[in-house]
């Protein structure tokens, strides 16, 4: 199954997401300058850079949380049509965001409803899509809790009672339950213990491969980028300064800044 989904053939030869000339100015100050890339189904693109490099601005633009000054974000809808997401109506865009797209926040509390149970957190998108069978919704929630390695006994507990790693896994389940095709992730392992990070990354890798997800992951952690991404974009001062295969950029960095970034990582 995974191989079939991963194999970039036929329909998958067309990009899922095409970003071009994406630019955002905060007043005079550029947040993101002329960023463009294609993303295909099954591809994981990591965006790395320091704080203030523009990577978070870029992710906010992609998630339509911020209006760009210039540029377009085109997405291949499930019916095959490429649509400029900025030109979608608000209703269409919100529907897209909660069905075909996912967003994993660094702080799980932002991506979860902390006061309602884990099961309801996972089931919310299903109910938003009109599912009205409690038993079915609960069965799907259980299935997803298992897939993200959360004990199904915890289905009725609120995420407040969960550890940081569990919350993050719950957030992922909540996003993936509608089988989205594109998932945006903002430092999904930030703030987690190293051992918890490894487990989460491993889980992510498996899910991405099994589901053939396209992922844009923002991280400042090059080890995370190496472990989960196929391609890498290095950002600095709002611009993409280097891009390529992840292992190529990390093992043979060209730009002075990238060399600095790579050489600053502690080797273990």
């Amino acid at each position: 199954m995974s191989a079939a989904l991963l194999a970039p053939e036929a329909d998958d030869d067309r990009p899922l997401l095409t970003v071009s000339g994406l630019t955002k100015y905060y007043g005079e100050r550029p947040g993101c300058l002329d960023v463009g890339f294609d993303l295909h189904p099954g591809e994981v693109l990591a965006i790395v850079g320091e704080s203030g490099s523009g990577k978070s601005t870029l992710l906010s633009l992609l998630a339509c949380r911020l209006a760009p000054t210039r540029g377009t974000i085109r997405y291949r809808m499930r019916n095959g049509a490429m649509r400029d997401v900025m030109s979608l109506t608000e209703a269409e865009r919100r529907l897209l965001m909660r069905t075909d797209w996912g967003f994993v926040h660094q702080d799980a509390a932002q991506g979860l409803r902390m006061r309602v149970s884990a099961g309801a957190n996972v089931g919310e998108r299903l109910m938003a899509l009109g599912q009205r069978h409690y038993g079915d919704i609960r069965a799907q929630a259980k299935d997803w809790l298992q897939r993200v390695e959360i004990d199904t006994d915890r289905i009725d507990d609120p995420p407040r009672s969960f550890s940081g790693g569990m919350r993050q896994r719950l957030q992922i389940a909540r996003n993936l339950v509608t089988a989205p095709r594109l998932v945006l992730m903002d430092e999904p392992t930030g703030g987690l213990d190293v051992s918890v990070q490894a487990r989460l990354l491993d889980l992510l890798r498996g899910l991405v491969a099994d589901l053939g997800l396209a992922v844009v992951i923002v991280t400042h952690d090059l080890a995370v980028a190496r472990l989960v991404s196929h391609r890498l974009m290095v950002m600095r001062q709002g611009s993409v300064i280097e891009t390529g295969l992840t292992d190529q950029v990390l093992d043979d960095p060209r730009e002075p800044y990238t060399q600095l970034l790579v050489s600053s990582v502690l080797q273990v």
Partner: peptide, 22 residues
């Protein structure tokens, strides 16, 4: 208000779901 405008009412069922779960 946006949810009313766009008829996004799935959230209300989350509350009913919680009732049944509890």
């Amino acid at each position: 208000r946006t949810m009313h405008a766009l008829e996004e009412y799935g959230l209300m069922h989350v509350k009913l779901y919680e009732d049944i779960a509890r």
